[in-house]
């Protein structure tokens, strides 16, 4: 009975993956005349290229990962002896509460607070790459910080006494001993953060403006793959828009599965 339900998990996973991938491939074959991987989106001309969405997804994910990762590194240092105890406790409490903030609430608050700020300060509509990337990086911080923290904390307590005996200050101990030792955890936090950032649908949909084009500047409106899926109405089943949707889903799934796979291989190396 227990064994059955455990194997059920693999079966469910297999079903979901097979289903999405097969529909993606089917869409690709059936829609071969629609240049699905092309860089033109023009439903009237029968061109449904999703290259622009791919570019936007990658840009948004990488940019928010970049800021989010550095902020997480900072938070992790605050938690591990760079700041007084009460500040560390305060930050820990806030990070824990942050893990529970629903994405849609982040999005809602940002639509009415951050978007007008950006609009007034920098011009444009306010719904842009910059806005989405700011909130997305904020949202990813707790997860990454907790991954880094668990590695840093155990390494720090292992080496603390030796380092102090050698005359190192706590900051030196952290920057010269612990952080270099925990580089693998840092990379695995980044990998996991990338998967999260590229898979999030709500924030890009609510904040990035959703114009279909290549984004070049932080104030450009953009539409990611995830936003594309959540926006296209499924009224024309079997049409070009629907095919582009299926292909986007298959791409996202493949990407995230590969990421989980890599981070698992990587995680095993850390444990050894």
């Amino acid at each position: 009975m227990l064994r059955f339900s455990a194997l059920l998990i693999s079966a469910i996973l297999g079903t979901v993956i097979a289903f999405i991938i097969i529909s993606g491939i089917e869409a690709f074959i059936k829609g071969s005349g629609l240049s699905l991987f092309g860089d033109v989106w023009n439903p009237n001309a029968g061109r449904f290229g999703i290259l622009m969405m791919i570019q936007c997804s990658v840009l948004l994910a990488v940019s928010s990962l970049f800021t989010g990762w550095f902020l997480s590194l900072g938070c992790c240092c605050i938690l591990n002896g760079l700041a007084p105890k009460f500040i560390a406790n305060l930050l820990m409490g806030i990070l824990t509460l942050m893990t529970a903030i629903p994405t849609v609430v982040y999005g809602f608050a940002a639509v009415f607070l951050l978007v007008p700020l950006i609009r007034d300060a920098l011009g444009g509509t306010g719904f842009c790459w910059l806005t989405a990337s700011m909130i997305l990086s904020l949202q990813g911080i707790p997860t990454m910080t907790f991954i880094m923290n668990s590695a840093v904390r155990s390494l720090s307590s292992e080496t603390k006494i030796t380092a102090t005996a050698l005359g190192m200050t706590p900051i030196q101990h952290l920057s010269r001993v612990v952080l270099p030792l925990s580089s693998k955890a840092m990379i695995s936090a980044a990998i996991l953060g990338l998967g999260r950032a590229i898979g999030d649908a709500l924030l890009p949909t609510m904040l990035a403006g959703n114009a279909i084009r290549f984004a070049k500047f932080p104030l450009d409106s953009m539409r990611t793959l995830t936003a594309h899926i959540s926006l296209v109405l499924s009224s024309d089943i079997g049409g070009g828009e629907h095919f582009s949707l299926l292909l986007s889903g298959a791409l996202l799934l493949t990407f995230c599965a590969v990421i989980s796979f890599i981070s698992r291989r990587f995680g095993r190396k850390i444990n050894l």
Partner: peptide
């Protein structure tokens, strides 16, 4: 892997 699947893809499923 299941944990890494984005929720929008699950919706598409």
């Amino acid at each position: 892997i299941l944990a890494g699947i984005p929720s929008i893809v699950m919706g598409l499923f």
